[in-house]
Design a protein around this nucleic acid. Sequence first.
DNA 1: GTTATATAACTAACTAGTGAGTTACACAAG
DNA 2: CTTGTGTAACTCACTAGTTAGTTATATAAC
Lengths: 229, 229
Amino acid sequence: MTAPTLSPRKATRTKTAAAPAREVATRDADKTRLKILEAAEAEFARKGLAGARVDLVAEEAGANKRMIYYYFGSKEDLYVAVLERVYTDMRIAEAGLELEDLPPLDAITRLVEFKFDYPAAHPHLITLLNGENMLGGEYLRRSTRLREMQISLIERLKTILAHGEKDGTVRPGIDPLHLYMTISAVSYFYFSNTPTLSTAFGRNLATPKEREIRRKHVVDVVSHYIKAG
Amino acid sequence: MTAPTLSPRKATRTKTAAAPAREVATRDADKTRLKILEAAEAEFARKGLAGARVDLVAEEAGANKRMIYYYFGSKEDLYVAVLERVYTDMRIAEAGLELEDLPPLDAITRLVEFKFDYPAAHPHLITLLNGENMLGGEYLRRSTRLREMQISLIERLKTILAHGEKDGTVRPGIDPLHLYMTISAVSYFYFSNTPTLSTAFGRNLATPKEREIRRKHVVDVVSHYIKAG
DNA sequence: GTTATATAACTAACTAGTGAGTTACACAAG
DNA sequence: CTTGTGTAACTCACTAGTTAGTTATATAAC
């Protein structure tokens, strides 16, 4: 239980003067750290916190197990680091969406498409979040600096809806938070529950064709919900 | 890895001549079996297949660990039994919905409300399904007799939509499978992701008040999607 | 006496975490 | 240049504790 915390993150950067860009490993040590994170992401996504094996992470990363404890302290702390990274990446991508220049309905459609395309491109995100929710979200809560990121998007959505109301394209009275949840839900559920749904319906829902059908459907659902008239 | 499979499920029912009602333990042995299933459901729901502890299931059930192996053969088989039970219960409840007597829009609203209320009343279902989906759905697939149950509801939904189209209340061209998925999604996601969403939004979404708001919202979303005009 | 049900004690394999030491390299003193 | 010192990065071998599954045995029912 006693964390050594040799604080390798504050390692002196003797040679490389320029600050490295996000997730670009410049030094060998950073590369090892990154490889561990990537291997851990896959392992935790596949098996959850309890099912993941530290030895397998080490093997997959081509690193010595001891280095995982050297860099991250414990299995749980490694898990938090993975969660933080994946979650932050998504929020950054979301923040980068240029919605404000578009007409309200188009802006929301773009958000819906993003909420479909992002998990499609990052399947680990889904299973990691599923696992985290099974654990009551306690590890994500542990992570600082995640609290502030989310709220801004709801504010942006609120503004977009207000514009739409004003120009008559959007039905009034839509709750931005619940709209955001619904937009997330209709795509997330599809990716998250494809395995059991495919079994239940006796039909593989993970094919590119089915995926495209679903994508059109979710845009359709949200459009009809927000459209005025 | 070698499953003993003592097939205790075919145990002779010497005393109780009448076929016992669903999940009502008549004999002591059936009671033990049921207690194990209930304890296992809670344990697997909370911690997933890998995180669950057989010893804890035994303790919680007030049964000897050996009896778990006697009745279910292995941890994995116990997990499948739990999954099967929970999933089947939901399908039975779903099949019991009397939708056919209602006007199409009301029928779909009733289905939406069911899809909200059922997971609200059975939180284990959500986490069990989440865990199962993380594992690729392989254990649910292992279970027979689940395949046929689902399809019927899609057929019923198809009929309802067709009636609605005919009487002009429902917009034509709605895919019943995707509608069903969307109806499931908007409620499921709320229950499934409450922990991380609450963290992200800095607002407890699990309160009765928030729940009621969400319930209204999901009915609203689906109504606007299917309504003609 | 055979079958179903039950218990406690046990084991083989696994698993997170550690102790102790090594390598590679930077920088400074002589 | 070479010797000494400091330290980040890394390896190997180990352990204390856990965990699914088992063995051996008991008892009640019929």
